[in-house]
Design a protein around this nucleic acid. Sequence first.
DNA 1: TATGAATGAGCTTTCATTCAT
DNA 2: AATGAATGAAAGCTCATTCAT
Lengths: 220, 220, 220, 220
Amino acid sequence: MAERSKKAIRREQIVRGLMRVLAKRGYAGAPISAVAREAGLTPGLLHYYFKGKQQILLELIEAIQATALERFEERLARASNDPWKRLFAFTDALLEAGGSQDADDAAACWVAIAAEAVHEPAVRRRYRSSLEELATLLRPLLTDVLAAEGRSSEDLTSAVAAITALIQGVHHVDAMAPELAPAGSSARVARHMIVGIVQAQSQVGSHDLPNDAGRRREHR
Amino acid sequence: MAERSKKAIRREQIVRGLMRVLAKRGYAGAPISAVAREAGLTPGLLHYYFKGKQQILLELIEAIQATALERFEERLARASNDPWKRLFAFTDALLEAGGSQDADDAAACWVAIAAEAVHEPAVRRRYRSSLEELATLLRPLLTDVLAAEGRSSEDLTSAVAAITALIQGVHHVDAMAPELAPAGSSARVARHMIVGIVQAQSQVGSHDLPNDAGRRREHR
Amino acid sequence: MAERSKKAIRREQIVRGLMRVLAKRGYAGAPISAVAREAGLTPGLLHYYFKGKQQILLELIEAIQATALERFEERLARASNDPWKRLFAFTDALLEAGGSQDADDAAACWVAIAAEAVHEPAVRRRYRSSLEELATLLRPLLTDVLAAEGRSSEDLTSAVAAITALIQGVHHVDAMAPELAPAGSSARVARHMIVGIVQAQSQVGSHDLPNDAGRRREHR
Amino acid sequence: MAERSKKAIRREQIVRGLMRVLAKRGYAGAPISAVAREAGLTPGLLHYYFKGKQQILLELIEAIQATALERFEERLARASNDPWKRLFAFTDALLEAGGSQDADDAAACWVAIAAEAVHEPAVRRRYRSSLEELATLLRPLLTDVLAAEGRSSEDLTSAVAAITALIQGVHHVDAMAPELAPAGSSARVARHMIVGIVQAQSQVGSHDLPNDAGRRREHR
DNA sequence: TATGAATGAGCTTTCATTCAT
DNA sequence: AATGAATGAAAGCTCATTCAT
C-alpha cells in the first residue's frame, strides 16, 4: 500500500506540475524539464512514471474533470430536490472560478488542452469523452427542469449542446479577457442564460425566431 | 497597383497557409516550413514578408475577425430595421460554420489562437481587442432589442459578456465535438439562447435566481 | 567621365556604409542589407558594384589606410625637416582619434578587420600589406631619427615592429576601453614611448635588460 | 569530487574546443557544430553545459586571462625582489608566444574576442574587466620601478595604458603578421619599450615633446 | 527509484547572392 | 542602373526521450 501510495503521489505531483506550467506558459512552453522543476522532481523521473509527455496531459484532463465533478457532487449533496437547484449545482460547480488558484489554472489549462485536442487524436478522444460525460450528467438534470416547468423535451439535445458550449465559452473568456465579464459574474450570468434557454424551449423549432420574438411581446 | 497587389497577395497567401495548417495541426505543429509548403512558397520568403511566425498569426487573427465582420456587414445590409433581425445578423454571421472550409478552419484556428493568447502577450492583446470589438458592435444591437422589448439596459454588460462567451464556446464545440450539436444548429441554438437572455433580463439582479426561476412562470 | 564618376561615387558610398555599420555592429552584424540601408541604396545594387561582401571589406581596408596616409602627407608637408617632427607626423596621423566620427569608426573597424584577417586569406593579405606599407614608411623616418640621435640602426626591424604593434594596440584600446587612457592622450603617450624606444635602442641587444636597466641608473 | 570534475572537465573541453576553432576560423566561422566536433561532443550537449554560444566565449576570455596570470604568478615566484624583474615577469608572461600552440591560439582568439567586444555588450564588459585587471596588476609593479629609478609617479595612468596597449598590439601583430617581428622577439622588444617609457617618464607632461625630444639628451 | 548526461531531430531565423523586370 | 523578390544553405537553440549509473 505504501508502494501504491508512493506511485500515486508521484503521479499526482507530476500532473499538478503540468497544470501549473501549462496554465502560465501553454503546452509548447511547458517542457518536461519545467514540469519536473515545478513538481520538484527530475526530468528522467517523469518518464519513469509516465510513458510520455502526452500521457501526463491525458491524466491532467481526467484530473480537472474529476475535480469539477467532485465539486458538483458536493453541491448536489447539499442541494434540495428542487430541479433548478440541482441544475445550478452543476453549472455553478463547472463555472466556479476566481475561487481558487487551482480553478483559475484549470480554466487556462482547458484552453490549452482544447488546442492540443484539435490535432492530437489521443487528446481529442479524452477531451471529447469529457464533454460527453458532462452532457450525460446534464441531460437528466435538464429533463427534470423542463418537466417541472411543463415543457417538452423535444429539443433537449440542442439545449444540452448549448449549455455545454456556454460553459466552454465562459472558461475561455475567464481565462483570456476576465475584464469583459465583471469578476465572479460568470456563474450568475450562466444561470440567467440557462433560465432563458428553458423558457425559450417551448417556442423553439416551430417559429421563425426573430419575427416571433418580436410578436411574442405584442401579444402581451 | 500591381506592385501593391503583389505584396498584398503574398501576405494573404501566407496567412491562408497558416490558417490551413493551424486548423489541422495546431500552432506548435505548424512549422514555418509547413506553412510555406501549404502556401506554395519557400520558408525564407515568409520571413521576407513577415518579421516572424508570430506576426503571421497576428495577421491571421485580424483576417478571421475581418471576414466575420464582413459577413456581418452583408447580413446587416440585407436586414430590415427590426432590432431582432439586426442582432441575429450579428450572431448568425459569427456562428456560421460548416458552410465553407474556411469557416470551419477559422473556428479551429480560433481555439489554437486562444491557447497562444494565454501565454503570448502580443497574441493576447490582439485577441482581446478582437473580443472587445465584438462587444462594441454587440452593445448597441442589444440595447436596441432591449428597448424594443421594453426592458431596461441595466445588466447590459453581463449580457454582452454572456453572448460573447457563447460565441466562443460554440466555436469551441464546433471545432472539437461537432457531433454534440446537430449539424448547423449552432446559429439557431444561439438565437434561442439570446432570446432567453433578453427575456431573463428583466428579472436579473433582483432575485436569487435558482429559487425564483422555477416559480417565476407560475406567478405570471 | 560622368560615368566613371558615378561608379566611383557609388563605390565610395557603399564603402562608407560598410564602415559605419561595421564600426557599430561588427562584421557579422553588418549584413549587406544594413550596409545598403546605411548607404541609401538597395541590396541588389551592392552586388552590381561589388562582386561580393568581401570585396567591399577589402576596399574599406584600402580606404582607411589611404585616409590615414593622407593625414600623414598633410602633416609631413607642414613639418620641418626635423626628423623627430617627421616621425611624429606619422604616429600622430595614425593615432589621431576622437577628432572625427570617421576616425573613431575607422579604429573600431580596424579591430573587426583584424578579426576577419585571422581566417579570411584575402582579407589577411590586404591587411598585411597595409601593415607592411606602414612599416615601409616608418623605416626611413626612424632611421633618420636614430641617425640624428647618433644611434645605430642595428635593431631597426624590431623597433619598427614595436611601433607598428603599439599603433595597433592603441587603436585597440581606444576602440574598446577608451576610459583606460585619458581622452586624446593616445598620440601623446605614443610619442613618449617612441622617444623611449629610440633612447633604449643603444643598449638593446647586448645586455640582459632587467639587470642592465637597474644598473644603468646606478652609473649615473 | 568526480561529480564536480565531470562538469568541470566538460566545460573545459568545450572552452578549449572554442579556442581552437576560434583561432583558426574566427567567431562567425566557429559554429557550435564545429566547436562540438573539435571537442568530441554533440552540439546539443554544448547547450546543456552552456546557456549559449556567447557564454562559452565569456568563459574563454576568463580562461585565457587566467592562464596568462598563472604564468605571471609562476614567474613572479621565481623572480627576485628586483622591481624590474618583477615588472618583466608580468610583461614576459603576457607576451610569451610561439612557445605553445595554446599561446598562439590564445593570441589569435584575443583578436576575435576584441572584435566581438566592439558590438556585444556582455563580451565588452568581460573584455574590459580583463584589461582593467591587467592594469590593476601592472600599476604597483610600475610604481615600484619608478620609485627604484627615482622617478615620480605622476603620469602613471598613461604609462599603464601605454603598456596595456602595447601588449594588445603585440598580440595583434603576432597573430596577424608574425613575420614583421622576428620570432620570439616580442617580449624582448616590449622590455626595451618599457625601459624607454620609464626613462621618458620624468620628462613627461612638462615639455612639448617633439621639439624637446631631439634636444633632451643633448642638454644633459 | 532516482539522477542528470547525452542524443538527435526539428524548429525559427538570418543572409549572401541571384535574377527577372 | 536599379529594384526587390526569391532562394537555399546555414546557424543557434530547444526538448522529448533514452540510458548508464
